[in-house]
């Protein structure tokens, strides 16, 4: 099972994703965080996570910064950036920070689950 942590400040999106992805095969929601600080705290607290689904825009630590820190502290964790921004510049920033995937917030939950699995498998 892929242990997934959601870092998303929007409650509706976070809860919706949590519920929908939890229903997908091979994915379990290891933790949820409403911002970057909370996510880091939980990781540092020892929650085991394989893949992080990180929102780009969050109050406090941004999604890119959170990615950079995760990859520095726990490089084995795969990070998928979830965003409304479609511009390539954002995408480049995300990959430079160590993200494994850059996903727009318009994907069907199934497609998102597929990407999570691919990232987890391929890295």
């Amino acid at each position: 099972m892929i242990r997934l942590m959601l870092a998303e400040d929007n409650d509706i999106v976070r809860e919706g994703l949590s519920q929908m992805l939890a229903a997908q095969v091979g994915i379990t929601i290891a933790a949820e965080a409403e911002n970057g600080d909370s996510a880091l705290e939980k990781l540092q607290a020892g929650i085991a996570v394989d893949v992080m689904l990180v929102d780009w825009n969050m109050p406090g630590i941004s999604g890119v910064e959170l990615t950079r820190r995760i990859k520095r502290l726990m490089p084995h964790i795969k990070v998928i950036i979830l965003t409304m921004h479609s511009k390539d510049e954002y995408r480049v920033q995300a990959f430079n920070a160590g993200a494994s995937a850059y996903v727009l917030k318009d994907l069907e939950v199934e497609d998102l689950a597929k990407i999570i699995r691919e990232v987890y498998t391929i890295g």
């Binding site: 929007n10 509706i12 999106v13 919706g16 409304m84 917030k105 318009d106 939950v109």
Partner: peptide, 13 residues
């Protein structure tokens, strides 16, 4: 945007 995305996700229900 977030709301619409939330709606879209929840449409899966």
């Amino acid at each position: 945007g977030q709301l619409l995305y939330g709606i879209k996700i929840n449409m899966s229900r």
